[in-house]
Design a protein around this nucleic acid. Structure first.
Lengths: 242, 242
DNA sequence: AAAGAGAAAATTGTTGACAATCAACCTTGT
DNA sequence: ACAAGGTTGATTGTCAACAATTTTCTCTTT
Protein backbone atom coordinates (compact mmCIF):
# COMPACT_ATOMS: atom_id res chain seq x y z
CA UNK A 1 0.00 0.00 0.00
CA UNK A 2 2.88 2.30 0.76
CA UNK A 3 5.86 0.67 -0.89
CA UNK A 4 8.80 3.03 -0.54
CA UNK A 5 7.34 6.32 -1.66
CA UNK A 6 8.94 9.66 -1.68
CA UNK A 7 11.41 10.98 0.84
CA UNK A 8 14.69 9.15 0.78
CA UNK A 9 16.84 10.04 3.75
CA UNK A 10 20.32 8.76 4.46
CA UNK A 11 19.27 5.48 5.98
CA UNK A 12 16.44 3.05 5.45
CA UNK A 13 15.64 2.86 9.12
CA UNK A 14 15.02 6.62 9.23
CA UNK A 15 12.72 6.42 6.24
CA UNK A 16 10.70 3.62 7.73
CA UNK A 17 10.46 5.37 11.08
CA UNK A 18 9.16 8.47 9.33
CA UNK A 19 6.66 6.58 7.24
CA UNK A 20 5.45 4.47 10.14
CA UNK A 21 5.02 7.58 12.26
CA UNK A 22 2.88 9.20 9.59
CA UNK A 23 0.90 6.03 9.00
CA UNK A 24 0.10 5.76 12.69
CA UNK A 25 -0.68 9.43 13.24
CA UNK A 26 -2.96 9.48 10.23
CA UNK A 27 -4.68 6.31 11.30
CA UNK A 28 -3.66 4.17 8.34
CA UNK A 29 -2.46 1.74 10.96
CA UNK A 30 -5.26 1.45 13.46
CA UNK A 31 -4.64 2.18 17.11
CA UNK A 32 -4.26 -0.88 19.24
CA UNK A 33 -3.37 -3.02 16.25
CA UNK A 34 -0.43 -5.36 16.23
CA UNK A 35 2.70 -4.53 14.29
CA UNK A 36 3.81 -7.60 12.38
CA UNK A 37 7.46 -7.40 11.46
CA UNK A 38 7.38 -9.80 8.49
CA UNK A 39 4.24 -8.19 7.11
CA UNK A 40 5.47 -4.61 7.32
CA UNK A 41 8.91 -5.56 6.06
CA UNK A 42 7.36 -7.04 2.95
CA UNK A 43 5.04 -4.06 2.59
CA UNK A 44 7.84 -1.53 2.67
CA UNK A 45 10.21 -3.74 0.76
CA UNK A 46 12.99 -3.89 3.32
CA UNK A 47 14.39 -6.52 5.59
CA UNK A 48 13.48 -6.85 9.22
CA UNK A 49 16.65 -5.19 10.50
CA UNK A 50 15.92 -1.56 9.64
CA UNK A 51 12.27 -2.14 10.40
CA UNK A 52 13.05 -3.24 13.93
CA UNK A 53 15.23 -0.18 14.45
CA UNK A 54 12.34 1.97 13.33
CA UNK A 55 10.01 0.23 15.78
CA UNK A 56 12.46 0.83 18.61
CA UNK A 57 12.45 4.51 17.69
CA UNK A 58 8.66 4.61 17.64
CA UNK A 59 8.66 3.06 21.07
CA UNK A 60 10.83 5.95 22.23
CA UNK A 61 8.28 8.34 20.75
CA UNK A 62 5.54 6.59 22.69
CA UNK A 63 3.66 5.61 19.54
CA UNK A 64 3.92 1.88 20.10
CA UNK A 65 4.47 -0.36 23.10
CA UNK A 66 6.67 -3.41 22.85
CA UNK A 67 6.69 -6.58 24.90
CA UNK A 68 9.56 -9.02 24.67
CA UNK A 69 8.95 -12.06 22.46
CA UNK A 70 5.47 -10.85 21.69
CA UNK A 71 5.86 -7.76 19.56
CA UNK A 72 4.74 -4.19 19.20
CA UNK A 73 1.25 -2.70 19.30
CA UNK A 74 0.14 0.75 18.31
CA UNK A 75 -0.90 2.70 21.38
CA UNK A 76 -4.56 2.87 22.23
CA UNK A 77 -5.77 6.42 22.64
CA UNK A 78 -7.72 7.02 25.81
CA UNK A 79 -8.85 9.98 27.82
CA UNK A 80 -6.56 9.53 30.79
CA UNK A 81 -3.40 9.37 28.68
CA UNK A 82 -4.58 12.37 26.72
CA UNK A 83 -5.09 14.40 29.88
CA UNK A 84 -1.71 13.32 31.23
CA UNK A 85 -0.01 14.27 28.00
CA UNK A 86 -1.68 17.65 27.83
CA UNK A 87 -0.77 18.37 31.43
CA UNK A 88 2.86 17.83 30.50
CA UNK A 89 2.33 20.06 27.52
CA UNK A 90 0.90 22.73 29.80
CA UNK A 91 4.05 22.68 31.88
CA UNK A 92 6.41 22.63 28.93
CA UNK A 93 4.73 25.09 26.57
CA UNK A 94 3.97 27.34 29.51
CA UNK A 95 7.68 27.44 30.19
CA UNK A 96 8.33 28.00 26.50
CA UNK A 97 6.02 31.02 26.52
CA UNK A 98 7.79 32.38 29.58
CA UNK A 99 11.18 32.02 27.92
CA UNK A 100 9.87 33.50 24.68
CA UNK A 101 8.81 36.58 26.64
CA UNK A 102 12.44 37.08 27.58
CA UNK A 103 13.95 36.24 24.22
CA UNK A 104 11.75 37.58 21.46
CA UNK A 105 12.78 40.80 19.80
CA UNK A 106 10.44 43.49 18.54
CA UNK A 107 10.87 42.07 15.05
CA UNK A 108 10.02 38.55 16.12
CA UNK A 109 6.85 39.80 17.73
CA UNK A 110 5.93 41.71 14.60
CA UNK A 111 6.36 38.66 12.41
CA UNK A 112 4.17 36.61 14.73
CA UNK A 113 1.57 39.35 14.72
CA UNK A 114 1.46 39.16 10.95
CA UNK A 115 0.98 35.43 11.19
CA UNK A 116 -1.99 35.88 13.48
CA UNK A 117 -3.40 38.51 11.11
CA UNK A 118 -3.19 35.95 8.34
CA UNK A 119 -5.02 33.46 10.49
CA UNK A 120 -7.69 36.07 11.11
CA UNK A 121 -8.03 36.80 7.41
CA UNK A 122 -8.18 33.13 6.59
CA UNK A 123 -10.83 32.67 9.23
CA UNK A 124 -12.94 35.49 7.81
CA UNK A 125 -12.65 34.06 4.32
CA UNK A 126 -13.45 30.42 5.11
CA UNK A 127 -16.11 30.52 7.75
CA UNK A 128 -16.38 26.86 8.51
CA UNK A 129 -13.27 24.93 7.65
CA UNK A 130 -11.88 24.14 11.04
CA UNK A 131 -9.44 21.53 9.85
CA UNK A 132 -7.34 23.97 7.88
CA UNK A 133 -7.04 26.06 10.98
CA UNK A 134 -5.49 23.09 12.67
CA UNK A 135 -2.23 23.58 10.81
CA UNK A 136 -1.99 27.26 11.60
CA UNK A 137 -2.80 26.55 15.21
CA UNK A 138 0.27 24.38 15.22
CA UNK A 139 2.19 27.16 13.53
CA UNK A 140 1.70 29.54 16.42
CA UNK A 141 2.62 27.03 19.05
CA UNK A 142 5.67 25.89 17.15
CA UNK A 143 6.84 29.48 16.75
CA UNK A 144 6.56 30.10 20.47
CA UNK A 145 8.37 26.88 21.22
CA UNK A 146 11.23 27.77 18.91
CA UNK A 147 11.34 31.30 20.32
CA UNK A 148 12.09 29.79 23.72
CA UNK A 149 15.64 29.26 22.56
CA UNK A 150 15.87 26.15 24.71
CA UNK A 151 17.22 23.43 22.44
CA UNK A 152 16.23 20.58 24.75
CA UNK A 153 12.73 21.90 25.17
CA UNK A 154 12.36 22.36 21.43
CA UNK A 155 13.49 18.83 20.71
CA UNK A 156 11.25 17.31 23.34
CA UNK A 157 8.14 19.18 22.25
CA UNK A 158 8.55 19.14 18.48
CA UNK A 159 10.23 15.79 17.90
CA UNK A 160 9.17 13.55 20.73
CA UNK A 161 5.78 14.70 21.93
CA UNK A 162 4.08 16.23 18.94
CA UNK A 163 3.45 12.98 17.13
CA UNK A 164 1.21 11.78 19.94
CA UNK A 165 -0.43 15.17 20.32
CA UNK A 166 -1.24 15.35 16.62
CA UNK A 167 -2.60 11.83 16.88
CA UNK A 168 -5.02 12.85 19.59
CA UNK A 169 -6.19 15.86 17.67
CA UNK A 170 -6.58 13.96 14.44
CA UNK A 171 -8.52 11.04 15.79
CA UNK A 172 -11.00 13.10 17.70
CA UNK A 173 -12.62 15.32 15.15
CA UNK A 174 -12.99 18.16 17.60
CA UNK A 175 -15.63 20.10 15.78
CA UNK A 176 -16.51 21.85 18.95
CA UNK A 177 -13.23 23.74 18.97
CA UNK A 178 -13.76 27.43 18.31
CA UNK A 179 -10.98 28.81 16.09
CA UNK A 180 -11.90 32.40 16.84
CA UNK A 181 -11.62 31.86 20.55
CA UNK A 182 -8.28 30.14 20.01
CA UNK A 183 -7.10 33.08 17.95
CA UNK A 184 -8.09 35.51 20.66
CA UNK A 185 -6.10 33.50 23.15
CA UNK A 186 -3.13 33.45 20.83
CA UNK A 187 -3.24 37.23 20.60
CA UNK A 188 -3.42 37.58 24.36
CA UNK A 189 -0.38 35.32 24.75
CA UNK A 190 1.53 37.25 22.14
CA UNK A 191 0.66 40.54 23.86
CA UNK A 192 2.10 39.28 27.11
CA UNK A 193 5.23 38.15 25.29
CA UNK A 194 5.57 41.49 23.52
CA UNK A 195 5.47 43.23 26.91
CA UNK A 196 8.03 40.78 28.27
CA UNK A 197 5.60 39.62 30.91
CA UNK A 198 6.85 36.10 31.36
CA UNK A 199 4.57 35.23 34.24
CA UNK A 200 1.48 36.27 32.36
CA UNK A 201 2.57 34.61 29.12
CA UNK A 202 3.05 31.34 30.95
CA UNK A 203 -0.28 31.61 32.71
CA UNK A 204 -2.16 32.36 29.51
CA UNK A 205 -0.46 29.59 27.58
CA UNK A 206 -1.36 27.15 30.29
CA UNK A 207 -4.98 28.18 30.30
CA UNK A 208 -5.05 28.01 26.54
CA UNK A 209 -3.77 24.45 26.49
CA UNK A 210 -5.90 23.43 29.44
CA UNK A 211 -8.97 24.65 27.64
CA UNK A 212 -8.06 22.75 24.49
CA UNK A 213 -7.56 19.65 26.59
CA UNK A 214 -11.02 20.00 28.13
CA UNK A 215 -12.58 20.32 24.70
CA UNK A 216 -10.72 17.24 23.51
CA UNK A 217 -11.88 15.38 26.56
CA UNK A 218 -15.51 16.16 25.80
CA UNK A 219 -15.04 15.11 22.21
CA UNK A 220 -13.52 11.81 23.29
CA UNK A 221 -16.24 11.15 25.82
CA UNK A 222 -18.81 11.66 23.10
CA UNK A 223 -16.87 9.46 20.71
CA UNK A 224 -16.74 6.40 22.95
CA UNK A 225 -20.46 6.51 23.54
CA UNK A 226 -20.94 6.40 19.79
CA UNK A 227 -20.49 3.40 17.48
CA UNK A 228 -17.01 2.94 16.04
CA UNK A 229 -16.33 6.02 14.03
CA UNK A 230 -15.51 5.94 10.36
CA UNK A 231 -11.84 6.53 9.69
CA UNK A 232 -10.87 4.27 12.53
CA UNK A 233 -11.25 0.84 10.96
CA UNK A 234 -10.37 -2.10 13.14
CA UNK A 235 -9.40 -5.15 11.16
CA UNK A 236 -10.40 -8.43 12.74
CA UNK A 237 -6.84 -9.74 12.76
CA UNK A 238 -5.47 -6.56 14.26
CA UNK A 239 -7.99 -6.24 17.00
CA UNK A 240 -6.64 -5.00 20.30
CA UNK A 241 -6.18 -7.71 22.86
CA UNK A 242 -8.70 -8.44 25.58
CA UNK B 1 35.98 -5.12 31.14
CA UNK B 2 32.24 -5.68 31.58
CA UNK B 3 31.53 -8.96 29.87
CA UNK B 4 27.96 -9.93 30.56
CA UNK B 5 27.71 -9.48 34.28
CA UNK B 6 24.67 -9.77 36.43
CA UNK B 7 21.15 -8.76 35.52
CA UNK B 8 19.59 -10.87 32.82
CA UNK B 9 16.40 -9.39 31.51
CA UNK B 10 14.17 -10.88 28.86
CA UNK B 11 16.18 -9.71 25.88
CA UNK B 12 19.83 -9.07 25.16
CA UNK B 13 19.15 -5.66 23.72
CA UNK B 14 17.56 -4.52 26.98
CA UNK B 15 20.52 -5.79 28.96
CA UNK B 16 22.99 -4.02 26.77
CA UNK B 17 21.01 -0.81 26.84
CA UNK B 18 20.96 -0.94 30.62
CA UNK B 19 24.66 -1.66 30.89
CA UNK B 20 25.61 0.97 28.36
CA UNK B 21 23.49 3.54 30.16
CA UNK B 22 25.23 2.80 33.44
CA UNK B 23 28.65 2.79 31.82
CA UNK B 24 28.02 6.20 30.30
CA UNK B 25 26.42 7.77 33.37
CA UNK B 26 29.24 6.52 35.57
CA UNK B 27 31.86 7.73 33.16
CA UNK B 28 33.34 4.36 32.28
CA UNK B 29 32.77 5.39 28.71
CA UNK B 30 34.12 8.91 28.41
CA UNK B 31 31.87 11.71 27.21
CA UNK B 32 32.45 12.68 23.63
CA UNK B 33 34.04 9.33 22.84
CA UNK B 34 33.04 7.28 19.83
CA UNK B 35 30.96 4.15 20.21
CA UNK B 36 32.51 1.39 18.13
CA UNK B 37 29.99 -1.29 17.33
CA UNK B 38 32.46 -4.12 16.65
CA UNK B 39 34.46 -3.27 19.73
CA UNK B 40 31.52 -3.08 22.12
CA UNK B 41 29.90 -6.15 20.61
CA UNK B 42 33.05 -8.15 21.31
CA UNK B 43 33.32 -6.61 24.78
CA UNK B 44 29.82 -7.60 25.77
CA UNK B 45 29.93 -10.88 23.91
CA UNK B 46 26.95 -10.27 21.65
CA UNK B 47 26.47 -9.67 17.97
CA UNK B 48 25.98 -6.26 16.49
CA UNK B 49 22.21 -6.63 16.13
CA UNK B 50 21.11 -6.23 19.74
CA UNK B 51 23.91 -3.75 20.30
CA UNK B 52 22.58 -1.48 17.59
CA UNK B 53 19.09 -1.64 19.06
CA UNK B 54 20.56 -0.61 22.38
CA UNK B 55 22.34 2.32 20.76
CA UNK B 56 19.11 3.46 19.14
CA UNK B 57 17.49 3.41 22.55
CA UNK B 58 20.33 5.42 24.06
CA UNK B 59 19.88 7.95 21.29
CA UNK B 60 16.27 8.29 22.38
CA UNK B 61 17.45 8.89 25.92
CA UNK B 62 19.75 11.64 24.67
CA UNK B 63 22.87 9.88 25.92
CA UNK B 64 24.45 9.48 22.50
CA UNK B 65 24.12 11.23 19.17
CA UNK B 66 24.17 9.26 15.95
CA UNK B 67 25.12 10.32 12.45
CA UNK B 68 24.35 8.15 9.48
CA UNK B 69 27.24 6.09 8.16
CA UNK B 70 29.52 7.56 10.78
CA UNK B 71 28.36 6.20 14.09
CA UNK B 72 27.43 7.16 17.60
CA UNK B 73 29.24 9.39 20.08
CA UNK B 74 28.58 9.84 23.76
CA UNK B 75 27.18 13.30 24.41
CA UNK B 76 29.54 16.00 25.54
CA UNK B 77 28.35 17.67 28.72
CA UNK B 78 28.33 21.45 28.57
CA UNK B 79 26.86 24.27 30.55
CA UNK B 80 24.23 25.38 28.05
CA UNK B 81 22.73 21.92 27.65
CA UNK B 82 22.73 21.51 31.40
CA UNK B 83 20.87 24.77 31.89
CA UNK B 84 18.39 23.84 29.17
CA UNK B 85 17.79 20.44 30.71
CA UNK B 86 17.30 21.85 34.18
CA UNK B 87 14.89 24.46 32.89
CA UNK B 88 12.79 21.65 31.49
CA UNK B 89 13.11 19.90 34.80
CA UNK B 90 11.88 23.04 36.55
CA UNK B 91 8.75 23.04 34.43
CA UNK B 92 8.08 19.34 34.80
CA UNK B 93 8.92 18.76 38.44
CA UNK B 94 7.19 22.00 39.30
CA UNK B 95 4.08 20.60 37.73
CA UNK B 96 4.66 17.30 39.54
CA UNK B 97 4.76 19.14 42.86
CA UNK B 98 1.57 20.96 42.00
CA UNK B 99 -0.19 17.70 41.16
CA UNK B 100 1.21 16.02 44.25
CA UNK B 101 -0.37 18.77 46.34
CA UNK B 102 -3.74 17.69 44.99
CA UNK B 103 -3.19 13.96 45.20
CA UNK B 104 -1.20 13.12 48.28
CA UNK B 105 -3.10 11.82 51.27
CA UNK B 106 -2.31 12.54 54.89
CA UNK B 107 -0.59 9.18 55.07
CA UNK B 108 1.56 9.85 52.03
CA UNK B 109 2.69 13.11 53.55
CA UNK B 110 3.50 11.38 56.82
CA UNK B 111 5.65 8.80 55.09
CA UNK B 112 7.56 11.48 53.24
CA UNK B 113 8.05 13.40 56.46
CA UNK B 114 9.65 10.31 57.95
CA UNK B 115 11.94 10.07 54.95
CA UNK B 116 13.08 13.64 55.45
CA UNK B 117 13.60 12.94 59.15
CA UNK B 118 15.85 10.08 58.17
CA UNK B 119 17.79 12.35 55.89
CA UNK B 120 18.16 14.79 58.76
CA UNK B 121 19.42 12.07 61.09
CA UNK B 122 21.81 10.80 58.47
CA UNK B 123 23.08 14.31 57.95
CA UNK B 124 23.69 14.80 61.66
CA UNK B 125 25.56 11.52 61.87
CA UNK B 126 27.80 11.93 58.84
CA UNK B 127 28.77 15.56 58.81
CA UNK B 128 30.63 15.70 55.55
CA UNK B 129 29.71 12.93 53.19
CA UNK B 130 27.76 14.78 50.54
CA UNK B 131 27.78 12.03 47.97
CA UNK B 132 25.65 9.71 50.06
CA UNK B 133 23.13 12.51 50.34
CA UNK B 134 22.91 12.48 46.56
CA UNK B 135 20.88 9.29 46.60
CA UNK B 136 18.44 10.49 49.20
CA UNK B 137 18.07 13.76 47.35
CA UNK B 138 16.90 11.71 44.40
CA UNK B 139 14.59 9.80 46.71
CA UNK B 140 12.61 12.87 47.61
CA UNK B 141 12.27 14.07 44.07
CA UNK B 142 11.27 10.65 42.80
CA UNK B 143 8.63 10.37 45.50
CA UNK B 144 7.12 13.70 44.51
CA UNK B 145 7.20 12.73 40.87
CA UNK B 146 5.41 9.47 41.54
CA UNK B 147 2.92 11.24 43.78
CA UNK B 148 1.89 13.34 40.81
CA UNK B 149 -0.08 10.37 39.55
CA UNK B 150 0.62 11.43 35.98
CA UNK B 151 1.93 8.33 34.22
CA UNK B 152 3.33 10.23 31.26
CA UNK B 153 5.11 12.70 33.46
CA UNK B 154 6.54 9.91 35.59
CA UNK B 155 7.85 8.05 32.58
CA UNK B 156 9.40 11.12 31.03
CA UNK B 157 11.13 12.25 34.18
CA UNK B 158 12.25 8.94 35.63
CA UNK B 159 12.99 6.93 32.51
CA UNK B 160 13.96 9.40 29.84
CA UNK B 161 15.45 12.42 31.54
CA UNK B 162 17.01 11.16 34.71
CA UNK B 163 19.94 9.41 33.08
CA UNK B 164 21.24 12.69 31.71
CA UNK B 165 20.50 14.54 34.93
CA UNK B 166 22.38 11.96 36.96
CA UNK B 167 25.23 12.25 34.49
CA UNK B 168 25.50 15.97 35.04
CA UNK B 169 25.46 15.59 38.78
CA UNK B 170 27.98 12.78 38.77
CA UNK B 171 30.53 14.38 36.51
CA UNK B 172 30.57 17.68 38.26
CA UNK B 173 31.54 16.89 41.81
CA UNK B 174 29.37 19.63 43.20
CA UNK B 175 31.00 19.89 46.58
CA UNK B 176 29.52 23.32 46.96
CA UNK B 177 26.02 21.93 47.31
CA UNK B 178 24.71 22.36 50.83
CA UNK B 179 22.69 19.29 51.87
CA UNK B 180 21.17 21.07 54.85
CA UNK B 181 19.88 23.86 52.69
CA UNK B 182 18.46 21.29 50.26
CA UNK B 183 16.76 19.52 53.13
CA UNK B 184 15.20 22.76 54.34
CA UNK B 185 13.85 23.36 50.88
CA UNK B 186 12.49 19.83 50.73
CA UNK B 187 10.63 20.42 53.97
CA UNK B 188 9.16 23.66 52.69
CA UNK B 189 7.95 21.92 49.55
CA UNK B 190 6.44 19.11 51.55
CA UNK B 191 4.70 21.62 53.83
CA UNK B 192 3.08 23.27 50.85
CA UNK B 193 1.99 19.88 49.54
CA UNK B 194 0.60 18.88 52.92
CA UNK B 195 -1.51 22.03 52.93
CA UNK B 196 -2.64 21.31 49.39
CA UNK B 197 -1.17 24.59 48.19
CA UNK B 198 -0.39 23.64 44.62
CA UNK B 199 0.74 27.05 43.52
CA UNK B 200 3.21 27.36 46.35
CA UNK B 201 4.48 23.81 45.98
CA UNK B 202 5.21 24.43 42.31
CA UNK B 203 6.91 27.72 43.03
CA UNK B 204 9.13 26.25 45.72
CA UNK B 205 10.05 23.23 43.65
CA UNK B 206 11.04 25.48 40.79
CA UNK B 207 13.22 27.62 43.00
CA UNK B 208 14.77 24.53 44.51
CA UNK B 209 15.73 23.15 41.13
CA UNK B 210 16.79 26.52 39.80
CA UNK B 211 19.11 26.93 42.73
CA UNK B 212 20.63 23.48 42.17
CA UNK B 213 21.14 24.37 38.54
CA UNK B 214 22.99 27.56 39.44
CA UNK B 215 25.28 25.64 41.76
CA UNK B 216 25.97 23.09 39.07
CA UNK B 217 26.73 25.87 36.65
CA UNK B 218 29.31 27.35 38.96
CA UNK B 219 30.86 23.93 39.48
CA UNK B 220 31.09 23.40 35.74
CA UNK B 221 32.57 26.82 35.12
CA UNK B 222 35.22 26.06 37.65
CA UNK B 223 35.84 22.64 36.18
CA UNK B 224 36.54 23.83 32.64
CA UNK B 225 39.09 26.32 33.88
CA UNK B 226 40.90 23.49 35.59
CA UNK B 227 43.04 20.79 33.94
CA UNK B 228 41.26 17.62 32.86
CA UNK B 229 39.77 16.16 35.97
CA UNK B 230 40.56 12.69 37.22
CA UNK B 231 37.75 10.24 36.58
CA UNK B 232 37.18 11.66 33.14
CA UNK B 233 39.93 9.94 31.16
CA UNK B 234 40.02 10.68 27.46
CA UNK B 235 41.64 7.96 25.46
CA UNK B 236 43.56 9.18 22.44
CA UNK B 237 41.57 7.04 20.05
CA UNK B 238 38.26 8.14 21.52
CA UNK B 239 38.94 11.82 21.56
CA UNK B 240 36.04 14.04 20.60
CA UNK B 241 36.21 15.32 17.10
CA UNK B 242 37.40 18.80 16.27
C1' DA C 1 57.90 19.32 1.88
C1' DA C 2 53.03 20.03 1.47
C1' DA C 3 48.73 19.25 -0.74
C1' DG C 4 45.73 16.55 -3.22
C1' DA C 5 44.06 12.44 -5.52
C1' DG C 6 43.51 7.63 -5.26
C1' DA C 7 43.56 3.06 -3.10
C1' DA C 8 43.07 0.19 1.01
C1' DA C 9 41.18 -0.70 5.48
C1' DA C 10 37.75 -0.33 8.68
C1' DT C 11 33.12 0.80 10.08
C1' DT C 12 28.33 1.23 9.41
C1' DG C 13 23.92 -0.25 7.01
C1' DT C 14 21.43 -4.12 5.37
C1' DT C 15 20.21 -8.76 4.43
C1' DG C 16 18.83 -13.63 4.96
C1' DA C 17 19.14 -17.63 7.88
C1' DC C 18 18.94 -19.86 12.45
C1' DA C 19 17.36 -20.27 17.41
C1' DA C 20 14.11 -19.35 20.99
C1' DT C 21 9.75 -18.08 22.46
C1' DC C 22 4.86 -17.55 22.18
C1' DA C 23 0.06 -18.38 20.37
C1' DA C 24 -3.28 -21.33 18.52
C1' DC C 25 -4.93 -25.71 17.57
C1' DC C 26 -5.66 -30.41 18.37
C1' DT C 27 -5.74 -34.35 21.15
C1' DT C 28 -6.74 -36.81 25.26
C1' DG C 29 -8.70 -37.93 29.60
C1' DT C 30 -12.24 -37.30 33.08
C1' DA D 1 -18.82 -31.49 27.07
C1' DC D 2 -15.11 -29.39 29.16
C1' DA D 3 -10.51 -28.81 30.88
C1' DA D 4 -5.71 -29.83 30.67
C1' DG D 5 -1.78 -30.92 28.26
C1' DG D 6 1.05 -31.39 24.29
C1' DT D 7 2.12 -30.30 19.45
C1' DT D 8 2.40 -27.49 15.48
C1' DG D 9 2.79 -23.10 13.32
C1' DA D 10 4.15 -18.52 13.33
C1' DT D 11 6.62 -14.60 15.23
C1' DT D 12 10.29 -12.51 17.59
C1' DG D 13 15.30 -12.42 19.02
C1' DT D 14 19.93 -13.22 17.51
C1' DC D 15 23.62 -14.14 14.54
C1' DA D 16 27.05 -13.98 10.78
C1' DA D 17 27.95 -12.51 6.15
C1' DC D 18 27.49 -9.02 2.42
C1' DA D 19 27.09 -4.15 0.55
C1' DA D 20 27.90 0.67 0.94
C1' DT D 21 30.05 4.46 2.94
C1' DT D 22 33.57 6.69 5.46
C1' DT D 23 38.10 7.16 7.11
C1' DT D 24 42.89 6.42 6.84
C1' DC D 25 46.99 5.73 4.51
C1' DT D 26 49.89 6.02 0.50
C1' DC D 27 51.56 7.76 -3.56
C1' DT D 28 51.95 11.27 -6.81
C1' DT D 29 52.46 16.02 -8.22
C1' DT D 30 53.70 20.77 -7.71
Amino acid sequence: MNPLIPIKSATLSEDIAQQLTNAIVQGQIAQGSKISEPELAKQYGVSRGPLREAIVKLEGLGLVTRTANVGARVIQLNIQDMLDTFTMREALEGMAARLAASNMTQDDVLRLTHLLDEHQAHLDAHKDEHYIQQGSNDDFHLRIIHASGNAKLIRLLTEELYAVIRMYRRHTSDQRSDPRQALREHRAILDAIANHEGDLAELLMRRHISRASQLLKQAMEQAVSLPTKAGLPIHPANQPKQ
